[in-house]
Design a protein around this nucleic acid. Sequence first.
DNA 1: CTGCCTATCACACATTTATGTGATTGGGTG
DNA 2: CACCCAATCACATAAATGTGTGATAGGCAG
Lengths: 210, 210
Amino acid sequence: MTRLLIYEDNPQLREGLTMLINGSEGFEVLAAFKNCNSVEEEVKAFKPDVVLMDIDMPGTNGIEGLKKIRKSSEDVKVLMLTVFDDNKNVFEAISNGANGYVLKKTAPAKLLEYIQEAQTGGAPMTSSIATQVLKMFSSIHSDKGDNYDLSEREKQVLQLLVNGYSYKMIASEMFIAIDTVRSHIKKIYEKLHVNSKSEAVAKAFKSRII
Amino acid sequence: MTRLLIYEDNPQLREGLTMLINGSEGFEVLAAFKNCNSVEEEVKAFKPDVVLMDIDMPGTNGIEGLKKIRKSSEDVKVLMLTVFDDNKNVFEAISNGANGYVLKKTAPAKLLEYIQEAQTGGAPMTSSIATQVLKMFSSIHSDKGDNYDLSEREKQVLQLLVNGYSYKMIASEMFIAIDTVRSHIKKIYEKLHVNSKSEAVAKAFKSRII
DNA sequence: CTGCCTATCACACATTTATGTGATTGGGTG
DNA sequence: CACCCAATCACATAAATGTGTGATAGGCAG
């Protein structure tokens, strides 16, 4: 028996979901709430297997609700529910330990399947969501980022800058004069289109030159 | 009609897959190869909709094959096929633009469904794979990392530092005196255990405070 | 061979940063 | 109420950084 809590502000949908799930073999809705202001206590009291959490709710939204749940319980599975496959929300939800992310327009049968999957440790996702996740993932780990045509020597200098070295330290580290370090850095700044050390460092991280 | 290429070193499995797919309505295997040494030319010649690519192959492995394909064609869908839900491979595959990642033990019916999904722009993943992806994702973007107890105001200042602002610019942006900016930054440095702007920026990126 | 680029070094000067030492105000807590 | 702390501002000074304008030497391509 899979025991659920539902958080959904829309009364029709909340009722609909509750009826659908209660009417299905092996599922039971313990309670359904219209906001997640007290989600911590409720989860603690009901000890559900799975939480269905709407993302777009007034007051405490679903992401906040998810965070609250994760503060006290790593164990309960949380399935995010939304109308949009909105990039930022997907990202936030996943980063905060959601177990899955499904669109509301998902067919009832599919939804039950997803719930089951979540409970058994899977990560159910609408196909469009999965696509987004993969895209985000590969954009994060894209090593295609420009390297701005830095020369080898310039890359070394930049690396040391990123590690927090001063000009003086770089000079001694690289066995060159401090003025040479300046020269290199000036060149680096031109190539990166920045004009301060911290900007260069930030750009190095963003472009994954480092 | 979904047109496929198959790369799989195991003869039994290669034949099995070919027969399964060819025997199914709406699918056609254009060719099946036992290695992907000439994958670029083959993809160019056959122009398949979907490529089934085994990961664990002798010679050029599946990841290399994927890279080769992606060099010349962004369009063809590539579905990675493997016996393991091995962490590193999943990561590599996704980073290199695989459209999906399924285990070989996937039931035939499910596999056809996955192929269809991939072709229509979805990102089919075995549930266990999806779980892994989510875990990797959240570990990359874990904001559980220390925030070093920065106050709200300090976080704002640090954010602006990261964006390349000078003290002067921060002061005007935040409507405070430049000396106040100095105070905040001094505090920030203490909390982050650094003593220069660029180090603070680097640490901000590393700890994902930003 | 000539021109171009990288790497090296030098000097000068203005600006920015880093650090120390204070002071004031208002909010929160024991 | 007394105390602490975050946030604000001030003044001073040393160090580091950013920028301009050179010069020299070696490697490589046309």
